[in-house]
């Protein structure tokens, strides 16, 4: 047996891969396949599916009601990504320029809140943002800064605050990794060639950290687009994102096929985006 394996490295590799492969097929590929099949079936009146083939679910996906929600979700996810980048880049730069010891402490401090359950962190924001009894409004009102409570809760603002807070660490980490690998001698070289600080940043640091920026942006954008807990809690249930529509199809509307079709559409769009990114970075690497 051992000799057989030694002589056939391909078989050995397949054997080594099989536990992981089996796990993925049973718990990932098979469920995904069920979602795909369900998306072409008809709904049962009170949930479940009726085994009758139809394209109707995919036609409904482009119904303005649902498609607009999709666009709105994309808009919220883009703003979330933008603000994460705006806050995350300077933070990553700051951390990367500290001494190794301080760096690891700061990274740890960044990650600790991330280990807390997302739901609990979102509820924590509720106590800050609530319109009439939230800490921010009560403090500002009692200090006389404002005369009426600010609309901090139950709107897109609250959703974006919650999402930016929740996903900031995954923006910072890849950017930090990219900046950390940046060769300081390149910056010295630029300075020796009389580049101003702005020029050094624009022409050396920024382009070299770009892979981290793109990776971080994708890591933020994708979960933000599919989020449904944050809009349900901080949005007060008043403004829906596509994640809420999907979860409602299963948990409230008894329409599993339509929920599956919406999921498939989202997956396809994200897959296309990821593939595009994958190919363009491969091309960039080949060019470099």
């Amino acid at each position: 047996m051992q000799q057989f394996l030694r002589r056939h490295p391909a078989v050995q590799a397949w054997l080594l891969l099989s536990p992981g492969g089996l796990f993925l097929s049973v718990f990932f590929i098979a469920p995904l396949f069920i979602v795909l099949i369900y998306s072409f079936l008809q709904r049962g009146t009170y949930g479940g599916v009726v085994w009758q083939f139809t394209f109707e679910n995919f036609r409904r996906v482009f119904d303005p009601l649902y498609f607009n929600t999709f666009l709105r979700s994309a808009y919220i996810a883009i703003l979330t990504t933008f603000f994460c980048l705006l806050l995350g880049y300077p933070l990553a730069y700051f951390i990367a320029s500290r001494s190794p010891r301080t760096r690891s402490l700061m990274l740890l401090a960044l990650m600790i809140p991330f280990w807390t359950n997302f739901l609990i962190r979102t509820y924590a924001w509720l106590t800050l943002l609530r319109t009439n009894t939230g800490l921010i409004n009560t403090a500002l009102l009692s200090l006389g800064v404002i005369a009426a409570p600010l609309p901090l809760f139950g709107n897109d603002f609250a959703i974006i605050v919650g999402l930016v807070y929740g996903w900031l660490p995954v923006m910072v980490l890849p950017i930090y990794a990219a900046l950390d690998r940046l060769d300081p001698s390149l910056i010295e070289a630029a300075r020796d060639l009389y580049a101003s600080s702005a020029q050094v940043f624009r022409r050396v640091i920024w382009p070299l950290s770009l892979p981290g920026v793109v990776a971080g942006s994708m890591l933020v954008f994708i979960p933000a687009l599919g989020s449904f807990v944050t809009p349900a809690i901080l949005g007060g249930g008043k403004s829906l994102m596509i994640g809420n529509i999907i979860s409602n199809q299963f948990l409230a509307a008894h329409d599993w096929p339509f929920g599956s079709a919406l999921s498939m559409l989202m997956m396809t769009l994200m897959l296309l985006g990821t593939l595009y990114y994958f190919r363009s970075t491969l091309k960039a690497e080949a060019d470099a």
Binding site: F28, P31, L32, I34, V35, Y38, A215, M218, L219, I222, P223, L225, G226, S227, G243, I246, S247, F250, W256, G259, S260, S263, M266, M267, M270, L271, T274
Partner: peptide, 14 residues
């Protein structure tokens, strides 16, 4: 990882 997250983000349990 981002690919996995992307899929996880939009996969509903069935």
């Amino acid at each position: 990882t981002s690919l996995a997250l992307a899929l996880a983000a939009c996969t509903q349990p069935t």
